[in-house]
């Protein structure tokens, strides 16, 4: 099988690969370029785990051939953080709001939400649901993903109030207590337990990014 030479700009770095015509973009990113942050949950275009930004637009990399992405710009989860490793508002919001559990769906959500908020920085509730409705998550029940999107919108708007507006816990009662013991949540907690920074630098590209 003759290979096709493709040149992609991935997370701002020019990358080259020789791929068979049938190679999926998801496999090319993961296995040829070593960017394994993009996940594959179904390989038939339904789960959204493999979502990356192609020229800024979310696409299913499992439904895209690497060869057709030749010459295009791609952003993967590895490229969402700032140049100094500073987490993007969307990444920060997901950490603050517990918007992930196993993390397998997360890169797809992060890419989707990044594009969503870029195009519509103040989405309505409906628009948030609509924007997320192409991505499956089997762990979170989506509650905290929706909160993460709202929180990310706040962060982007510069409304950084020092933490999320409380975890969505209801009252906690200890059996036999006469009174509610109060809300379990970091809201108002001076330590601001909700400010998870992203430790470490972004991985960006592996050494020898050019000409993989």
């Amino acid at each position: 099988m003759t290979n096709i030479a493709v040149t992609l700009t991935v997370n701002g770095v020019v990358r080259r690969a020789e791929v068979p015509g049938r190679r999926l973009l998801s496999d090319c990113l993961r296995h040829d370029l070593g960017l394994t942050g993009t996940h594959v949950g179904c390989e038939h275009g339904v789960c959204g785990c493999c979502t990356v930004l192609l020229d800024g637009e979310p696409v299913r990399s499992c439904l895209t051939l690497a060869a057709t992405a030749d010459g295009h710009e791609i952003t993967t989860v590895e490229g969402l953080a700032g140049p100094d490793g500073e987490p993007s508002p969307v990444q920060r919001a997901f950490a603050e709001c517990h918007g992930l559990q196993c993390g397998f769906c997360t890169p797809g959500f992060l890419c989707t939400v990044t594009a969503l908020l870029r195009d519509n920085p103040a989405p309505s509730e409906e628009e948030v649901l609509e924007g997320l409705s192409g991505n499956l998550c089997r762990c979170t029940g989506y509650q905290n993903i929706v909160r993460s999107v709202r929180r990310a919108a706040e962060l982007i708007a510069g409304e950084d109030d020092g933490g999320p507006a409380g975890w969505p816990s209801g009252p906690v009662r200890t059996s036999g207590d006469a009174e509610d013991t109060g809300h379990a949540g970091p809201a108002g907690d001076a330590e601001g337990a909700g400010r998870a920074g992203i430790a470490g630098g972004a991985t960006g590209e592996r050494a020898g990014a050019e000409g993989a």
Binding site: R30, H31, E78, H98, G103, T106, G197, I198
Partner: peptide
């Protein structure tokens, strides 16, 4: 104990540095 401490697994999982089975063994 009993506090909603942010998760320590999140930084790696949010930046594509998680290591799931198919990410291993290049």
């Amino acid at each position: 104990f009993g506090e909603p401490v942010p998760r320590r697994e999140d930084p790696r999982l949010l930046t594509g540095r998680g290591r799931y089975l198919d990410d291993l063994g290049a």
